[in-house]
Design a protein around this nucleic acid. Structure first.
Lengths: 222, 222, 222, 222
DNA sequence: CATGAATGAGTTTTCATTCAT
DNA sequence: AATGAATGAAAACTCATTCAT
């Protein structure tokens, strides 16, 4: 797998709604400005995001989502075939957005140190701007209700990331070993920090995030 | 909080069952060899552990647990007041065991590098011997159904760990900064590796775990 | 307590549904002519009345009520928070109706003999028109599932009745002694007759009811 | 039906246990002094009496009765075929005792006024000495779980009482009309007073009971 | 005999989904 | 298209009864 797989990410997003690549690619960009039909769909997805993040998939009744979204319970089923379809659409949307954010215009030719900085910064941006989405993605990683498309999306970020690590290893700038280890380390540190902040043990200030980035680099540098 | 708080961990384990500290302390040690009265309780806790780990609290119906445990559905309520009481007992049992495993006879006077090795090794032992328990603890960290006792147990491991980090920082052997950052980094790397293995991206061989430990040390060393 | 407390009765009726006094006052009058939204509620209350009267609160499963009411079991919980809330609503409704029937436009200045006749007649009317309601009220008098509001309603009929007895005693027309004794006697005779009819030992003809009224008067007259 | 039907009462008591008339007749007299096997049966019946009186048949779990009786849950089923059999045995025991108390050596040739006094006094004795039994009998009068024997027992007291009323009517000492009316009146007054005392509205002092008796007599006298 | 742990049918209650309006 | 009342299947939990000890 290589960097260019990034272009497939958007195609998988919101897969339950539209199947066309180009449509899918543009759909979420214009999400906030869509009109008739779209605003309710957005409201539902937003309410679902918050509730799934706080209470989990099985812990969130559909009528509660409807109430929070300000729509009728039946309306949800006009936009999504089922609760499962909804959680998959939501997962694909946010995993897709995260993937786009991270991979779009990624500096292919920067130094590994610089690339880590870019990756780290973008992930932190996502965490800051969409904390509930991050929590949702983290909590629903491997729910049995996720379909193949959702699972496949995971790889679209992991794949390019692994490629970058391999390239850096080839240059001797990152430790030798399975690249998955170092990706797990970097992501693990980030997730560790974020979870510590959720638990109230830590505040995610820019300084602390920078500190975390430094740790991540030291963890993987050769 | 200091290292000696470790002795309180056992006292909190299985709190819903016995209240006496000494009893609680010894109860789980003999769990596998318990007499007739306890075997069903053990079967229930074991079935619950597997199912909660795979499907989550809300995703696991009581009758399914009963079937997996080989008991009647009503039997579960002879041992636990409610499904919530069961998940709390389970959480406290395993968090307590993890705490004991990590903290018992911890080398207070070893070097930070050595202490990290010991911590890392013990955590890996737990992951290897009780993978479902680790998954369960990871997934149920902050469920709204956890009671005060369960939440309090969390701190009994975190507390001592933070103390060690502070001591090492004072000696200039670990980076300066909030100790929570470095604890989150170490744990994050471990959890990252374990999750990668769950996802099938990595096999947790001794070599890889050692690699992870090296990363963890580099991440936090001064 | 005086006669005017009667105006509070309606306010307490159906207290679980509406809180406004004026609304509550008029709500049950139009009960039989309610619109689409209320017909199921009425059907549930009617089915519950019959079943609770025949089999008691604990002896009546919710699905049986649902079947008798011609609704789904879940529907009952759209109208009542719980089975307990339902029995309380039912109790308050009928106790309220009985209170209204007895106290509305009661002849404050008639002779005690005439007042007894009026009270007796109205009670008999209630028994004739709502035999199941009378049975229900009689059987659920002091169930532990009744809430404060239900219990309080009891007093709104007893209070005025006691006042009338006291007034008549002051005029020397009713025996001296605690007024509660004579109220118990009058009500006891009525309930005795009704229960005898339930047992099949007696038919509640107008003659027999008149006979009972005569007994009641002789029982309490000075 | 005449007075001599009284001798059949005992024969029906505890019918579920023994069928022989003589045995049945003597069984409850010696109840408190019986030994092996009997004491547990008594404990069960006593616990059941209290619990059924307070919470009703369906509101009383068998395990709770067992606990209150100080026996194992299974033990109850060594003495009674089922919960229904138990409530019937209990009903028959106490209805039988009440019948015996009222009818044994009843003054057949006394004046109606004197006979009422005797009846009233004996009923009051029962209420005073066995308040829970009275409450139990009152509450379980016509439960659907009562069998034919239990229902039949009712008549063994009512029958003789009606005979006495008829005799008194023939002498012109009690009002003309269906004797059931006057029996219902007398019993109704008594039950009314007792229920008022349960509700806390009245204390059953000797004076008040005498007052009640006076009311009862006035209610029925010609 | 006596027990009380065990059970599954039955209870109350919830909830994903449908459908008449 | 949108709704939310209605539903029944399934959830959590209870309890009358059994049976191994």
């Amino acid at each position: 797998m290589n960097v260019h797989s990034a272009i497939h990410i958007s195609a998988m997003m919101d897969a339950n709604r539209e199947k066309s690549v180009s449509e899918a690619f543009s759909s979420y960009r214009t999400a906030t400005s869509t009109h008739s039909g779209g605003s309710k769909r957005e409201a539902i997805l937003e309410a679902a995001l918050l509730l799934f993040a706080e209470r989990g998939f099985h812990g969130t009744p559909v009528p509660l989502m409807a109430k929070k979204a300000g729509v009728g319970a039946g309306t949800i089923y006009r936009y999504f075939e089922s609760k499962e379809a909804l959680v998959n659409a939501l997962y694909q949307r946010w995993k897709g957005r995260l993937g786009e954010l991270v991979l779009t215009d990624f500096q292919l030719d920067a130094s590994p140190r610089e690339q880590l900085r870019q990756y780290w910064t973008r992930m932190c941006t996502f965490v800051r701007e969409h904390p509930q989405a991050f929590k949702f993605l983290e909590a629903h990683h491997h729910g049995p209700y996720l379909d193949e498309t959702s699972r496949a999306l995971e790889m679209s970020i992991l794949g390019p990331a692994l490629t970058f690590i391999e390239l850096a290893q080839a240059k001797g700038l990152i430790k030798a070993g399975p690249p998955e280890v170092f990706l797990a380390a970097v992501n693990g540190i980030l997730v560790g920090l974020v979870k510590a902040s959720w638990a109230g043990n830590l505040e995610l200030t820019p300084e602390i995030l920078a500190q975390g980035e430094a740790c991540a680099w030291e963890a993987i540098r050769a």
